[in-house]
Nucleic acid binder design. Sequence first.
DNA 1: CCTACCGATCGGTAGG
DNA 2: CCTACCGATCGGTAGG
Lengths: 215, 215
Amino acid sequence: MSASVSPSHLEPKRARGRPRKTEDERDDGNRRQQLLSAAARLFRRNGFDATSTRDIAAAVGMHSGSPFYHFKSKDALLCAVMQEGMQAAIARQAKTLRGVAVTEPLEQIRRLVRAHFETLLGPGNDFVPVMLYEHRSLNARQRAVLAALQADYEAAWTPVLEALHASGHLRAPVKLSRLLILGALNWSVQWFDRKKGASLDELTDAVMALFLKEC
Amino acid sequence: MSASVSPSHLEPKRARGRPRKTEDERDDGNRRQQLLSAAARLFRRNGFDATSTRDIAAAVGMHSGSPFYHFKSKDALLCAVMQEGMQAAIARQAKTLRGVAVTEPLEQIRRLVRAHFETLLGPGNDFVPVMLYEHRSLNARQRAVLAALQADYEAAWTPVLEALHASGHLRAPVKLSRLLILGALNWSVQWFDRKKGASLDELTDAVMALFLKEC
DNA sequence: CCTACCGATCGGTAGG
DNA sequence: CCTACCGATCGGTAGG
């Protein structure tokens, strides 16, 4: 692996990016991770079809063919982005529920909602939004993989909603409630602006006030 | 305009489509309308980027260059699809509210929700879903046009939600409530299956039960 | 991970 | 609205 001179047209991009190879960092899975992050950001901003593998390569200072050394196809890269997003979301969800008693479904739902907003709207969290809005670009096999992860994620909501339904805090059918509530949250990707408007906490409060009955 | 023989590879498509030119129908704005409908259906099913102008042409029995006789660019066709969708949605909304007293905000919101579902999920109503999910593919000028129509559409919800807030049926802030409720409805495009599950009326009931407090 | 390249597709156009 | 076509871009690959 020689210290090849990088092409001049990539310099400016590199300049405001991270340094490369200057410190003797091992680029083991590092370059792969950089590709994933750049792809997530570009897929979210411009869409999967409107993002070329060349764009992604340039964003991490690679040449056009090099992403295919790490991923066997553009599809596979998209799928990897989504998987990483869902795994992080599932981990965040499990963590936020840890130590909350089943007897406190109101606290559970609040934490689920807050964690979901963090997953969708937190800084640098582009992976799950890509999953939500580029689902169509996967093939059947990839969809099955993601559907399983999504089912895992949503499964955590059902017992909480059932408890809320039993206690009278929720009147609508549980299954439709889950679909409608998650829809309301997912749609926030379209309108939420981190730089103005409500904070994620205020958003969470609004969701609680909107969906749950006092009793 | 001679009776040109149609290329053989298009015959099967034509055979199970509508007849053409057999009856002496004037093709005035008719062909244009066919292009709009076909484009809406294909954009919704496969996405804007994944649909070629050749696909759209073939769907109405035209040749590859012919859509550009009716629309000056693929963008313009997309924009026209969205405009048609929003105009129909605004008209449906105005019609469903006609004759309902302002003193009955519960009946108003029920009708708004039901009409919105019809616009999103009714058979053949592909225009607004395209508007919701292909917004990114418009240029700035086109976005402004659509944003104005969308503002018109959403404006009808605000006084109703304010009345519901005043009467205690709605606890969350009106602006966030509107965003969250419309999000919940818009997301139904992702999961609703006309052939199974709830009907639009049952969906509407669930929305009412989920978002509104009795008092 | 770079170099050099290929085959395919696509939006769009001139000219009728 | 068809015919014939162009320039550009894109995913992907061989070979190092």
